[in-house]
Design a protein around this nucleic acid. Sequence first.
DNA 1: ATACTATTGACAATCAATTGTCAATAGGTA
DNA 2: TACCTATTGACAATTGATTGTCAATAGTAT
Lengths: 126, 126
Amino acid sequence: MTSQRETKQLHAIRTVIEKAKRPLSINELHELAKKDIESIGLRTIYRAVRRFETEGEIVSVPVPGGSDRYELKSVAAKHHHHFHCTACDSFFDIHGCPGGLKKLVPEGFKLEHHDLTLSGLCASCA
Amino acid sequence: MTSQRETKQLHAIRTVIEKAKRPLSINELHELAKKDIESIGLRTIYRAVRRFETEGEIVSVPVPGGSDRYELKSVAAKHHHHFHCTACDSFFDIHGCPGGLKKLVPEGFKLEHHDLTLSGLCASCA
DNA sequence: ATACTATTGACAATCAATTGTCAATAGGTA
DNA sequence: TACCTATTGACAATTGATTGTCAATAGTAT
């Protein structure tokens, strides 16, 4: 029967996602996973991400003008936003949310979600 | 000498951009311009957009999880945000802005800009 | 109207991101 | 340990978006 094997690659990728306190791109995942398993291939990152996504472990985070990032579903479940560092191109979690969005919605429109992306320099780059 | 010719194609594309009250994607521009000039090619849309962009007439609007939209620089100059209709995939301008963003920024980070995208259904789709 | 050349649009080419393929490898079970 | 097969990773293939090319077209100045 088809059982899921706990390979060192999957373990490394999962660990990277769990330890990062921010949403990661495919390439960031690859770079970080390589620190653990230098020979790990990009193909393996793609496969793991699709798999974790399908299994509901992670979710994709669409960001303005960039490729999707990925974060734990448990993290995504708590409403939050992101800060984009324009210098290192990393995204960071922002807790809290500005209120009063309903008053911005035009007549007849139905508001369901919202995304806020702050941008500037992160602590390391500032 | 290299003079700019006022072709009907460029005129049609410019008119589409000016009349739309919302930022348009390359494909939206193409579809709308075709209503004026049926034979207009996608290649011409790309060229016109790059040119208007270079000349500072329009700016690109990066949106989460989608291809860039374009709007008049004069419109973009007035700080505003967007509403994304998940049904028809159009973006609309939202005037107004939630305040109090600075308090969300982590210690040591430097806030420079922010993007807010509301989403849900537009008046036509709701 | 004529000549000059910027612009167009069909088509091919490129580029980046993602996925398919498959022989080699390595979990995991008997 | 030995076997079975899920997984890996090198490589090719695909996809979608964008750009290059170039003969034909169409502004525009004379």
